[in-house]
Amino acid sequence: MQISTTPTIELHRLHRLFGSTHAVNDISFEVHRGQVYGYIGPNGAGKTTSMRILSTLDLPTYGDAFVDGFSCINDPDRVRRRLGFMPDYFGTYANVNCWEYLDFFARAHGLVGRERSQALRRVMAFTGLNLLAEKPIRGLSKGMKQRLCLGRTLIHDPAVLILDEPAAGLDPRARIELREMIGQLAADGKTILVSSHILTELAEMCDRVGIIEQGRLLATGTVEEIQRQQSQASEVRVRVLGGAQALSQWLGAREDVEKIVLDGEYVNFAHAGVREAEVELLREMVVAGFAILEFGTHQTTLEDVFLQVTRGYVQ
């Protein structure tokens, strides 16, 4: 994917204090056009606060946030034209049906006439709400309400989407559908900042992630990049025919191997080095006469990275 040089979202040394609580502590990162950035952290880590600052709902104590080059503090109206925010609550009205609800937000975004009716039809088709247009919001399921809220976020076709826990409380089917929708929007070139507790889903949809705890951004980048930042060693598991003990002794003599554990036919160890070094290690094992049945490195998941990076502190 072609990445533009100017970031669409930029947080620059952002701080937010609530009394003595440092909810957001010196956070800086950038998201470029068309990227999906996953924002991960335990409850109370500062995700929602920084998302609210980006959405022009709160002011930082220090620092600034920018959307498409416009300051969220000094040019909120310009930011708002470019931004769609989906908070972690529904924000619906009583005595209003789905069409009326979306129509209101379309009007509030300044859409008029044909432009508004087109936007309404487009969003209802995208979120699959066509058949529920006349249905009162009160009677919608949680999944449908979430679709409606996504529709509200998209009604003015913003270039940037801020989605705070969009999959919270949804059933597996609704989650998959939501993930697909986010994927489609990213493919359209929208820049998306999404927070979630469901890490497996984030891993599938995000280009990059940021891990936040106690208001601090502990790591940012792709999952692989963060994993590499955290540890230079990769976990290797080798199955050897009739020589596990010998292999473990052979490995113990090497400087690039540590944490060797024997497990029946398997030998697990940590290997410091890049992929090419792993290939070389395998070749050396075979040359040394070991009958290697399996040689694999453990695939690091977002969950592994998250658990490695965070300490479970809550403020």
Partner: peptide, 14 residues
């Protein structure tokens, strides 16, 4: 109270 004000406040309405 319900947070809908926040949703309106980030539209084009002042």
């Amino acid at each position: 109270e319900d947070g809908t004000y926040e949703l309106i406040s980030i539209t084009a309405l002042n």
